[in-house]
Deep mutational scan, measured.
Amino acid sequence: SEEWVEIALRLLELGREANINGTILNLHKEEIEELIRRLLKRI
């Protein structure tokens, strides 16, 4: 399964939302940290 691709796409999506909203992603901080942890486990 290409889970890391899904994770990377989700991170990009959150990054785009952050640019549009001008936020520092506090809302998504925990989700982002969890996604990155899952991503690093696969490398």
Rank of each mutant, 00 (worst) to 15 (best):
L27E: 11
N19M: 13
A8S: 07
E31T: 02
I7L: 06
I24L: 06
K29M: 15
L27S: 12
A8I: 14
L39R: 00
E3P: 07
K41F: 07
G22A: 11
S1R: 12
A18V: 12
L27N: 10
A18I: 14
L11E: 00
V5G: 04
R16V: 13
L35W: 08
N21D: 09
L12F: 03
I32M: 07
W4C: 10
I43E: 01
L40I: 08
E34G: 08
E3T: 11
I20W: 13
G22V: 10
T23L: 12
K41I: 09
E34R: 07
I24V: 05
T23E: 12
I7R: 02
L35C: 15
R38D: 09
W4G: 01
A8R: 02
E2H: 14
E30D: 12
E13M: 08
R38K: 05
K41R: 04
R38I: 06
L11N: 00
E6V: 09
L14M: 02
I7G: 01
G22Y: 07
S1I: 13
E13N: 04
L27G: 07
L14G: 03
A8L: 14
N19S: 14
I43Y: 08
T23Q: 08
R42F: 15
E3I: 11
T23G: 11
W4V: 06
E34A: 03
E6S: 05
E3N: 13
G22H: 09
I36H: 00
I32Y: 03
N26I: 15
R37M: 08
I36V: 04
A8Y: 11
E34W: 11
S1D: 08
E6A: 07
I36K: 00
W4L: 11
E2A: 10
K29I: 14
L11M: 02
R16C: 14
G22N: 06
N26A: 13
I20N: 11
I7M: 03
I24P: 14
K29H: 13
L39N: 00
V5F: 06
S1F: 12
L35M: 09
I20P: 02
L40V: 08
L14Y: 04
S1Y: 13
R38G: 05
L12H: 04
L27M: 11
V5N: 03
I7P: 00
L35F: 04
I32T: 03
T23W: 10
E6F: 12
N21R: 11
V5M: 13
K29A: 12
I36Q: 00
E31S: 02
I32K: 00
E13Y: 04
G15W: 15
A18S: 07
N19A: 13
L14T: 01
E13R: 06
K41M: 14
R10S: 04
R42H: 14
E34Q: 05
K41H: 10
L9D: 02
N19G: 10
I36S: 00
L14N: 02
T23R: 01
A18W: 08
L40D: 02
H28K: 03
R10N: 02
L11S: 00
